[in-house]
Design a protein around this nucleic acid. Structure first.
Length: 420
RNA sequence: CCAGUGACUCUGACUGUG
């Protein structure tokens, strides 16, 4: 059973779904019984590979079997759904855990707190933390890092710092992830002094910075135009014997690209490849966007095709980048074709994709299609975003319908979308 | 004893200054 489970794990890791399914079948054909670990590998593997329907089938089969799934099984499944941002199924799995009479452990709570953080329900995240305490598990470092990070990302820096104080008083030892989350918080309030001080503070606390730490700082200084400081931090990182990774390269490529220095951006891209660090969709997207921002749509599409030739599947951001560029060039047909291609290849459109179409339609006075897109979006379960409301308000205002614009503002507030 | 679970970093959309 263990040997089969390992093979299944490897198949899923390589995203070889069909191979995994074959293994699953021949395992039974050979009379080998899957155990709880096997089910855990298979169910979470199927979710990873976007086979939700099969995952549910296997999970139902497990329910009918005499194997009792334990906490660790549910934790894996909740995590798999969370990685796919499928909050609904993740929460359903939590319910299923409770129905099965299993008990949440500290992993479960950590995952659930993170789940509600990612879903933007910070109050619920704090509530789960209370439940965790009530169940006899004190907050651990995962809980703190998830919450500090989430509050900072929602602009509630005060709450992040309050949690940091709690952590210090609780005697939990902060690790590098907690410091990194804090560092992000300082970067958000644009405090270079504090950010660099924190780097020293963490070292004094016996916590060594990692590549994420440096990347946060590099990105932060690059964004505020201090490329020299960003590059010197990159040298510090190498001096600290932290190996370069794709994140650091992507950050720098995007920095140079945004500043119009395409040569430097391209050189870095070549350098990363020569070091055996693989370019990802993010790398290509940064290079594509840079060309678009310079008005070079042809060059952008060349990179787009290179990306496909490199067997890197364009993701929702890649589609968003080129669709928006085509729309802004007035090439509605091409944009729609890309939109269809995206859906056909299994990439789900997100709010950014819809906002590009809606904004473009409105700017061309095509209210009907704008609303059609809005409906499609709602049908896909996506809430109307601030950006979309802004597009409508702008359109109404520019055509002189101030009453309508004001009504739209009231509508967005009523729908719980805070104006920015 | 051998296989499965949680946190932190990179890329795309709207408006205002020009």
């Amino acid at each position: 059973t263990v040997a089969w489970t390992v093979r299944l794990r490897d198949a899923f890791r390589q995203r070889k779904v069909n191979q995994a399914i074959e293994l699953w079948k021949s395992m039974r054909a050979n009379g080998v019984k899957p155990n709880a670990v096997t089910y855990s590998v298979v169910v979470s593997g199927l979710i990873d590979c976007d086979q939700d329907w099969l995952a549910e089938m296997v999970q139902e089969e497990l329910q009918r079997s005499e194997i009792v799934p334990h906490t660790r099984f549910f934790n894996s499944v909740i995590t798999a759904y969370l990685k796919k941002r499928n909050f609904k199924k993740a929460i359903e799995t939590w319910d299923y855990l409770k129905q099965s009479g299993a008990q949440e452990d500290s992993y479960t709570y950590g995952t659930l707190v993170n789940l509600f953080c990612k879903a933007g329900q910070l109050d619920k995240a704090m509530e789960v933390r209370e439940q965790m305490h009530a169940a006899g598990f004190p907050s651990d470092v995962y809980i703190y890092s998830a919450l500090i990070d989430a509050f900072a990302k929602h602009g509630l820096l005060h709450e992040s710092f309050k949690l940091w104080e709690h952590l210090r008083r609780s005697g939990v030892k902060a690790n590098v992830a907690v410091y990194n989350a804090l560092l992000n918080a300082y970067a958000r309030q644009s405090d270079p002094r504090e950010a660099l001080d924190l780097l020293d503070k963490m070292r004094m606390d016996g916590v060594e910075p990692n590549s994420i730490t440096y990347n946060i700082l590099i990105h932060y200084f690059a964004k505020r135009g201090d490329v020299a400081k960003a590059m010197s931090l990159w040298r510090d990182m190498r001096d600290a014997n932290i190996p370069d990774d794709a994140f650091v390269y992507n950050t720098l490529i995007s920095t140079f690209a945004k500043r119009g220095n395409m040569t430097a951006a391209q050189d870095l891209a070549n350098e990363m490849l020569s070091k055996g660090i693989h370019a990802s969709a993010v790398t290509y997207n940064a290079l594509i966007d840079a060309r678009i921002k310079r008005g070079d749509l042809q060059g952008a599409m060349r990179i787009w095709h290179q990306m496909k030739e490199a067997r890197i599947e364009p993701d929702v951001v890649a589609y968003g980048t080129v669709i928006d560029a085509q729309l802004k060039k007035g090439r509605l047909q091409i944009a729609c074709r890309l939109f269809e291609e995206m859906k056909a290849s299994g990439v789900k459109p997100d709010a950014v994709i819809y906002s590009s179409f809606i904004d473009s339609y409105l700017k061309h006075g095509n209210y009907t299609d704008a609303v059609r897109m809005l409906d499609e979006m709602a049908h896909a379960g996506l809430p109307t975003s601030v950006v979309i409301f802004n597009s409508f308000i702008d359109w109404l205002g520019k055509k002189g319908d101030l009453t309508g614009a004001e009504a739209m503002l009231i509508k967005m507030v009523a729908e719980g979308v805070p104006p920015n």
